[in-house]
Nucleic acid binder design. Structure first.
Length: 569
DNA sequence: GCCGTTTTCGGCCCGACTGTTTTCAGTCG
C-alpha cells in the first residue's frame, strides 16, 4: 500500500475521532503520524515487512499495529467500525468554514443530517438556530460557508493570491501608522495553491491599522474585526487575514504566521528542548519568561541553533537537519533567470509577435528569449509546417541583426506522438537552436505505455528539454499516468533538462518531484509557456517551485549566460 | 495515542475572535 493512502486513512480516522468527541491529543497523534508517513521517503510496505514501524516518529505500539493490519490486508477493522458508527458524509461537512467537529456532531445527533445538501436545506428552513449553542448568526454563517466552499472549491491558484496579496500590501504601505508589513502564510512560502492570504503588520496603533485594512476598496465583506486580528473577503472571494503586532515581536510573528504548521511544531519543540518558549510574541526563557528574541526571524532561528531557513523551505522536509549541518541549499534567486525558452508567438497559438516579446523580455532584464512554437500535427494550436519553420527562422535571423546585447533563439515545442516518435524529422529538428518535447494529446494511456512513449522521445539526440513532465492542470486535470522516477532517471542518462513550467495552473514538475530529480543530479530549465507577453512574469512562480524543491542557481540551465548555455546544448 | 537526560504517568502550544450566554465553548490558524 502506498504511503499517501495509509496517511489518508489515518487523517480520516482523526476526523472521525474528532466527530466522536475523542481526546484532542489522541486525534493529533493520528494526524502527526499521517503527516510523517505522507512525506516519508521510504516505502511503508518495506518498513512494515521489516517490523520497523515503531521507528517512525509519532508511531507507537497502537498505531504500528493498525498500520501493519492496513498494509498487510488492505483493510483496517478499527476504521471500518468507526465508519459504521459515524457516517462518512460528515467528514465533508468539516470542510465548511465555521463548522468544526462539535457543531457537525450536534447537527448530526439532533437532526440526522449527513450531507451538505441536507444541511443547506435545514439552514434555509431555520432549523439550526434552535440547537444548543447555535443561533441565527451561526445559521447564516453556515449558509455563507457552504456558498463560499462551492464558489472557490477551497483554494486559489498561486498567481491569483499573489496579486491580491501584494496589491493589498501596496495599499497598506501607504498608512504611516504601519511600521512594517509583509505577506505571511502559504503565500510567503509560495505554495502552489493558497487557502487564504495572510498579512502581518507591525504598529503601535493597531486600531487605526484595522480601520484602514477593512476600508480597502476591494473588500466585499468584513468577516471579523478586532484590535490584533481581522479578516475580510475580497470581491474575488479570496479571504485575507491581517494580524498586527508590536514592532519588537515582528520577527517572531512573521515566523509564526509564515508556517508551515508542521515546520512550526518542530521548531517550537526544539525551542522547548533548549529551555525556551516560542510563540508569536517572541522567544522567551521557559522559566523566567524573560524576552530573548523576536524582532527578526534570523535571531530566532539563530538562538534555537539554526541558520536562517528561507520561507519556501519551511515544510518539514529535512530543512532542520540541513540548517543544523549548514547544508541548506543556496537557493536560486528570483532575479537569477537570464532568459525564457518556453514562449509561444503569433507563429502558432501565441498572441504576440516575436518583436513585441523581445521588447518585454528586454524590459525584464533578460539577455535572450527562445520562441518555442508548436509542431505541425498540433493543428488546433496552429503548429508550424516544415515550410513555416524555415520562414520563422528567417524572421528571427533578421530580427537578431537589429539587436545588440540580446539574442532571440528559435526553438520548438515538438509533440511526442502516441507511439513515442516526434512530430518533426531529425532533419527539421536540427534546424532549431533547441528542442522542447511534450505531450499534448493521448493523455489517457496506461502508465507503462505513457512512460515508454516519453522515454522514447527523450532518447532522440536532438532533444534538449522535456516540457511539463506530468501534464497536470491544477484543479482541472490530474497528471497523466507516468512513472516519474523513470523519467527522472532517463533525463539523467540523456542529459535532458526537465522543465519546471511556471504557468500557474501547471507548476510542473512540482516542488517535491523537482527535489527528487535534483537529488539524482538532473538539470532543469524554467519556462513560462507564455502565450501572451503578460505571461512572461509567471517565471517567478517557476522559480518559487524550484526554490521549494531546494534547487540552486547551478541546477537551472537558463540561469547561465547564453554563451555557456550554447556549449551545454 | 505518543513520549521520556527530572517523568512509565501526565503532559502534549495556545491566543484571538465570534457567538451564545452571563463566563465560556467552538473554531481557526
Amino acid at each position: 500500500m502506498k504511503n499517501h493512502l495509509v496517511a489518508n486513512i489515518l487523517y480520516q480516522i482523526a476526523d472521525l475521532l474528532d466527530l466522536k468527541g475523542e481526546n484532542f491529543f489522541k486525534t493529533r497523534a493520528y494526524r502527526m503520524a499521517a503527516q510523517t508517513i505522507e512525506v516519508l521517503e521510504e516505502d511503508i510496505d518495506a518498513i512494515t515487512k521489516e517490523n520497523r514501524l515503531e521507528e517512525i516518529p509519532g508511531v507507537g505500539e497502537a498505531l504500528a499495529k493498525k498500520i501493519k493490519e492496513l498494509v498487510e490486508t488492505g483493510k483496517l477493522e478499527y476504521f471500518e467500525l468507526l465508519k459504521k458508527e459515524i457516517p462518512e458524509g460528515l467528514l465533508n461537512l468539516l470542510n465548511i468554514p465555521g463548522l468544526g467537529p462539535k457543531k457537525v456532531a450536534a447537527i448530526y445527533k439532533n437532526l440526522g443530517i449527513t450531507s451538505r445538501i441536507e444541511l443547506q436545506k435545514a439552514a434555509n428552513e431555520g432549523k439550526l438556530r434552535n440547537l444548543d449553542g447555535f443561533g441565527e448568526l451561526t445559521e447564516q454563517n453556515i449558509i455563507r460557508g457552504i456558498q463560499l466552499l462551492e464558489k472557490t472549491s477551497g483554494r486559489a491558484l498561486l498567481n491569483v493570491a499573489y496579486n491580491d496579496g501584494y496589491n493589498y500590501i501596496k495599499y497598506l504601505e501607504k498608512l504611516k501608522d504601519i511600521e512594517k508589513v509583509n505577506v505571511a502564510g502559504s503565500l510567503r512560502r509560495m505554495k502552489e495553491t493558497i487557502g487564504d492570504v495572510d498579512i502581518l503588520a507591525s504598529s503601535n496603533k493597531p486600531e487605526k491599522v484595522m480601520d484602514y485594512f477593512v476600508a480597502y476598496p476591494e473588500v466585499q465583506q468584513v468577516l471579523a474585526k478586532g484590535p490584533t486580528k481581522s479578516s475580510v473577503l475580497l470581491k474575488d472571494n479570496i479571504q485575507v487575514d491581517l494580524r498586527v503586532v508590536e514592532p519588537k515581536s515582528y520577527g517572531a510573528a512573521l515566523q509564526y504566521f509564515t508556517g508551515s504548521k508542521e515546520h512550526n511544531v518542530i521548531l517550537r519543540g526544539l525551542a522547548i528542548k533548549k529551555g525556551y518558549k516560542l510563540n508569536e510574541y517572541g522567544l522567551f526563557d521557559k522559566v523566567t519568561e524573560k524576552f530573548i528574541a523576536g524582532k527578526t526571524e534570523e535571531e530566532i532561528y539563530k538562538k534555537i541553533g539554526f541558520s536562517y531557513i528561507e520561507p519556501e523551505l519551511r515544510e518539514n522536509r529535512g530543512e532542520f537537519d540541513a540548517a543544523k549541518n549548514n547544508t541548506l541549499p543556496k537557493l536560486l534567486g528570483y532575479n537569477d533567470i537570464l532568459g525564457d525558452f518556453h514562449i509561444h508567438s503569433l507563429w502558432s497559438d501565441g498572441n504576440d509577435s516575436i518583436e513585441n516579446i523581445t521588447i518585454t523580455a528586454k524590459k525584464m532584464g533578460y539577455s535572450f528569449v527562445g520562441i518555442s512554437d508548436h509542431s505541425q500535427s498540433l493543428k488546433i494550436a496552429n503548429g508550424l509546417s516544415e515550410e513555416r519553420v524555415d520562414k520563422k527562422i528567417k524572421e528571427i535571423t533578421e530580427l537578431n541583426k537589429k539587436l545588440s546585447n540580446f539574442t532571440i533563439l528559435c526553438g520548438t515545442e515538438c509533440d511526442i506522438k502516441t507511439d513515442g516518435t516526434l512530430d518533426y524529422s531529425n532533419k527539421v529538428l536540427k534546424k532549431f537552436d533547441y528542442v522542447y518535447i511534450g505531450i499534448h494529446s493521448g493523455f489517457k494511456m496506461d502508465k507503462n505505455k505513457m512512460t515508454d512513449r516519453i522515454i522514447k522521445g527523450m532518447f532522440n539526440d536532438n532533444v534538449n528539454f522535456l516540457a511539463h513532465p506530468t501534464g497536470r492542470l491544477i484543479g482541472k486535470r490530474d497528471p497523466y499516468e507516468v512513472d516519474i522516477e523513470k523519467i527522472i532517471d532517463t533525463a539523467k542518462d540523456t542529459d535532458i533538462c526537465l522543465e519546471i513550467n511556471s504557468f500557474p495552473d501547471r507548476l510542473d514538475l512540482n516542488d517535491t518531484d523537482s527535489k527528487l530529480a535534483k537529488e539524482k543530479n538532473v538539470k532543469f530549465v524554467i519556462g513560462t509557456d507564455s502565450h501572451n507577453i503578460n505571461h512572461l512574469p509567471f517565471i517567478r512562480f517557476g522559480v518559487a517551485t524550484a526554490r521549494r524543491g531546494w534547487l540552486e542557481k547551478k541546477d537551472i540551465l537558463n540561469a547561465y549566460p547564453l554563451k555557456e548555455i550554447k556549449n551545454m546544448l
